[in-house]
Nucleic acid binder design. Structure first.
Lengths: 116, 116
DNA sequence: ATTGTCGGTCATATTTTTCTGACTTATTGT
DNA sequence: ACAATAAGTCAGAAAAATATGACCGACAAT
């Protein structure tokens, strides 16, 4: 089995591993969809919710997120057997990161406006 | 077929631009070196401080960081004419992000240990 | 028994990012 | 004058990330 959940840490920074996960394509999008969805979501729903995405990349992204405990995967052995994903407590913690990042982009935009 | 789960597609992430900068190779390393250096640093010093890096990639990284106001570039017209790079106020703000990210990785490591 | 859906995997292609090595311009030291 | 250093740029090569399309196993419905 090929291990696609290992990304090389080039800078020896403690936060680098999570940063690499966050910067994987579709991960912020998955995060956002899950956050606003507010309930467990299924693979096919994510696929539909993220136009332009594809199974393979979503699969890689979800495995990465899961292996870093940012989301939880649950096999629901019920009526229609299916699989649910949701944001973990650790993942919820990341909302602060997104918040800070968007604050920075707001600061930068204000500076651009002031410069004109 | 019954699509009762309404998923709002907020694909436009406000923090994405900065996230892309942060996830550029060598950017976290540059950040780290600058942070611990505590004084303006020069291109050639960064190159030495980041083994495995190269001029081209550092140049790209620095331009990205500068264009997003994370660092400041200054041409020093003195004795030996040279160029200095500094973390900006905005850049300093990012330290919180790294802090949060490293906290998450600490949480994950503790979970791994607990699982053994 | 066949068809269809869900949640994927696999091999391969394409795209994007990063690296290498040659070259440049300006200044400084001998 | 000549070589050396600093701070890069440029084109092309190599590596890494992402996408495509075929396929698969479990289950459900016709």
């Amino acid at each position: 089995m090929t291990d696609n959940t290992t990304i090389i840490n080039h800078n020896n920074c403690p936060g680098q591993d999570i940063l690499n996960v966050l910067s994987t394509k579709w991960v912020p999008g998955i995060f956002k969809v899950m956050h606003f969805n507010n309930e467990p979501i299924r693979f096919s729903e994510l696929l539909k919710a993220l136009p332009g995405s594809n199974k393979q990349s979503l699969s890689v992204a979800l495995h990465l997120m899961e292996s870093h405990s940012l989301i939880e995967k649950r096999v629901v052995r019920e009526k229609p057997l299916h699989i649910e994903y949701n944001i973990s407590d650790t993942g919820t913690y990341l909302l602060d990161v997104f918040k800070t990042l968007s604050e920075i982009s707001t600061i930068n935009k204000q500076k651009e406006i002031a410069a004109v």
